[in-house]
Amino acid sequence: MTQLFFSDHSIMEAAPPLVIFGAGGLGREVLLLLQQLNEAQPTWTIGGFYDDQPPSSPTVAGLPYLGTSADLNATTEPLAVVVAVGSPSGRAGVVRRLTAPQLSFPVLVHPGVALAAHQRVELGEGCIIQQGCILTCDIVLGSFVFLNLGCTVGHDATLGEFCSLMPHANVGGAAQLGTGVYLGTNATVIQGVCIGENALLGAGAVAVRDLPANVTAVGVPARVIKYNK
Rank of each mutant, 00 (worst) to 15 (best):
I195M: 01
P78F: 02
D8I: 01
N198W: 14
G112L: 01
F5N: 09
V153L: 10
Y65D: 11
G142M: 00
K229I: 10
V121M: 05
I128V: 15
E29L: 03
A199G: 12
T76G: 08
S87G: 13
C127K: 04
I190A: 07
G173F: 00
V81S: 01
I11Q: 15
V30Y: 02
H168G: 05
Q41P: 01
L159Y: 05
L37Y: 00
S143G: 04
V181F: 11
L63Q: 07
L135H: 07
N38M: 06
P54M: 08
T216N: 05
R223N: 09
Q102W: 02
C194H: 13
G27I: 02
C151A: 06
L72T: 01
L66I: 07
Q35V: 00
V171H: 06
V60L: 12
V145Q: 10
V208K: 09
I46L: 13
A70L: 06
D8Q: 14
A116W: 09
I139N: 01
Q53C: 09
S104D: 06
F5W: 12
L32F: 09
V206M: 11
A217R: 00
V224P: 07
L149I: 15
P221H: 02
V181Y: 11
S7L: 02
Q119M: 11
M1G: 12
A15W: 00
L149H: 14
I134R: 13
F146V: 10
V85L: 12
P17A: 09
P54G: 00
C151G: 00
I129Q: 12
G192F: 09
V206D: 03
I190V: 15
S143N: 11
K226C: 03
A207E: 02
P42E: 04
L32C: 10
P221V: 06
F49A: 06
E197I: 05
G27Y: 00
F49T: 08
N73H: 06
V193K: 07
K226M: 05
P58G: 12
G184F: 04
S57F: 04
F105Q: 10
A114L: 14
V30T: 15
L32Y: 08
I20Q: 05
R120T: 01
V181H: 13
F105T: 13
I129H: 02
F144I: 04
L66G: 02
Q119Y: 00
A222R: 04
A203V: 12
I139Q: 03
V206S: 13
Q36E: 14
Y182V: 12
V107I: 10
G112N: 10
A157E: 01
A14G: 15
L135A: 07
L72N: 02
A213D: 08
A117T: 06
G24P: 09
V145C: 15
G160Y: 10
G192H: 08
Q3V: 11
